[in-house]
Design a protein around this nucleic acid. Sequence first.
DNA 1: CATGGTGAGTTTGGTTTTCAAACTAACGGC
DNA 2: GCCGTTAGTTTGAAAACCAAACTCACCATG
Lengths: 162, 162
Amino acid sequence: MSRRPPAITVPGRPCPAAATLQIVGERWSLLVVRELLFGVHRFDPIARNTGAPRDRLTARLRSLEETGIVERRTYQQRPPRHEYHLTEAGRDLAPVVFALFGWGDRWLFDESPATLHHRAADGHEHVLPLDAPRHCPTCDEPLRPEDVVPRRNLPAQATEQA
Amino acid sequence: MSRRPPAITVPGRPCPAAATLQIVGERWSLLVVRELLFGVHRFDPIARNTGAPRDRLTARLRSLEETGIVERRTYQQRPPRHEYHLTEAGRDLAPVVFALFGWGDRWLFDESPATLHHRAADGHEHVLPLDAPRHCPTCDEPLRPEDVVPRRNLPAQATEQA
DNA sequence: CATGGTGAGTTTGGTTTTCAAACTAACGGC
DNA sequence: GCCGTTAGTTTGAAAACCAAACTCACCATG
């Protein structure tokens, strides 16, 4: 539970929501968090799945690292390569991402899409990347098709995962 | 429940969260929603309480109106003056704002602040502007001090309400 | 009736961000 | 030696942002 120093001042009403937005309110930041929540940890796939320009993605990852949302783990030296993982504070942003998810789901798609859920053995439901991988990124259980419940159908559009 | 046409395409993974961010992800937008949730409906106080530059605020209010988050109500002709109110879709953004609020509260303030709650007679709790006004902007009940529960103390900093 | 104040913007001119696309660099495999 | 992969960096141009000053229509005051 490593808390950062506040050092955050916001213009206008002093409010935790405004302070949070100073940290994750720039473009792409929350989509990066979404990808990390979905179990995508490397630069190129994050760039593809968010659509962020590569230089922006670099900048966002650095600032998220600085603010303690993201942790960079080296997975090989020479050439140095890293994976990005959420810290505890980062994982705790899940409610924000899911609130955005829920609103979009309720208000922006008429009949249509939404999300895949993994009904885990223990009864929990985990949200899956919309193009489901082979195992649940949240609980790491292998996925059997019958565990996966499409809440609704997705309008056709290609996305890449790995 | 007037739904808007989707017409939203996002780069990368097609995802309701990304779509939502295309609508409320620009700077100041969610702070404007916060103010409206808090019962502040006019241009100048919204500008003060968010800290947004006036031209940005104009732009945000227009685009939030276009996307059906905000409704502009004329409250006097000559000179034309308006109040801004949330639509149903706009009010439904409350979970997003509160999720941001909660995260900031948990991770950005060490001992400190949070929020005032109004414990209404009916048992409901309403979140109040951090510098509480004379009556609850959500339910319009007059406020008696004993109804207002500061969740924690606020670090001193002036804010204006009206 | 001039002066000052309020509310809701608009204008201005300059700074900062953002962007797509091209480029670099260090490997690994064939 | 050449190709492909990964993780960036560089470039130059477009878009967004900013604070401060300004406008315009009113109202109140003296």
